[in-house]
């Protein structure tokens, strides 16, 4: 399996070299791993595929030994600062779907961060590759309103079916119960 991975690492090195060869190019070339921009976060490898590359990348990683999709969650970056640790060439969007894959044979993990725009919150499902994403994708749909194309049962999972809104979005209003202390004239 390490043999299969080696060419892609070579690709990454080649990509770096090409940056040195063409210094006049304005946009810095992102470092590539498995053909997509890669970054590092606290020693963990993070890939940044586009929405179009996403499913094909997960499928090819599965061939490379990343057999298990361990985690899938959403993040709403509304109101986050400019420093999102994205490699060059990856445009930040409001939503992100974060997928964790694990390779048991070389005991390594890899993380995917896919940018999902607010205007079109949808993404292709991984269900056909990893049936384990069924519940997590439903949770992301429930909590963030990102729908997954091709998912067999795209319904709410934690909130009631008739619920309005997606609670983990940053602009979802928090319900608060005003605290009335004894003798206070106004609710705080």
């Amino acid at each position: 399996m390490s043999d299969a991975e080696t060419p892609s690492i070579d690709d990454a090195e080649l990509a770096e070299e090409s940056v040195e060869e063409v210094p006049e190019e304005e946009l810095p070339q992102p470092e590539l791993l498995h053909g997509v921009p890669v970054s590092e976060s606290r020693g963990q490898v993070v890939l940044h595929p586009s929405r179009e590359e996403y499913v094909a990348l997960v499928a090819s990683l599965r061939e490379l030994g990343y057999w298990m999709c361990i985690d899938l969650c959403g993040v709403d970056y509304l109101g986050y600062g400019p420093n999102r640790n994205l490699p060059a060439g990856v445009a930040p969007e409001r939503f992100e779907v974060v997928v964790g894959l694990i390779s048991h044979s070389d005991r390594s993990r890899i993380r995917l961060r896919v940018q999902v725009p607010e205007s079109d919150p949808q993404l292709a499902t991984l269900f056909q590759i990893h049936p384990s994403v069924e519940n997590p994708e439903r949770e992301v749909f429930d909590m963030f309103g990102i729908s997954f194309d091709g998912h067999p049962d795209m319904t709410r999972i934690l909130m009631p079916d008739e619920w309005v809104g997606h609670p983990l979005r940053k602009d979802y209003e928090l319900g608060r119960i005003p605290v009335q202390f004894k003798g206070a004239s106004t609710a705080r």
Binding site: R42, N83, N85
Partner: peptide
């Protein structure tokens, strides 16, 4: 500090 991390 800013950043993201997954621990298991």
């Amino acid at each position: 500090p800013e950043g993201e991390v997954y621990v298991a």
